[in-house]
């Protein structure tokens, strides 16, 4: 039974969690093209490597983000949503600065 280090509750059995899938940006609901939407809905990157995913702790109803290596199932880091957003903004800032 794998352990998931929940950002709020600490390490818990993976049976308490549900994975929604990779973190993706939804295309525009008003003018997103069929190709963009088909890509978002059906065509996955399906990467063998490190991805960020949405996870739900069912016992507490809390959604959070986990960074996982899909080749060995190692969970590298987890964030609450606020922390993840902060992290993304920081990253965008540094990429913008380069």
């Amino acid at each position: 039974m794998k352990l998931m280090p929940c950002p709020v509750h600490g390490e818990r059995n993976i049976a308490e969690f549900v994975c929604k899938g990779p973190v993706l940006s939804m295309p525009s609901a008003t003018h997103g093209s069929p190709q963009l939407w088909a890509r978002y809905l059906f065509l996955a990157e399906n990467k063998a490597g490190i991805i960020d995913e949405w996870w739900l702790h069912t016992a507490s109803g809390m959604w959070f983000v986990a960074r996982r290596d899909t080749t060995c199932d190692e969970i590298l880091q987890t964030w609450s949503i606020e922390a993840y957003r902060k992290e993304r903004r920081k990253k965008q800032k540094t990429t913008a600065q380069r």
Partner: peptide
């Protein structure tokens, strides 16, 4: 780690 602030990224 428990004594630190919450909502910080959990590192291995």
């Amino acid at each position: 780690a428990r004594n630190k602030a919450r909502n910080k990224p959990q590192n291995k």
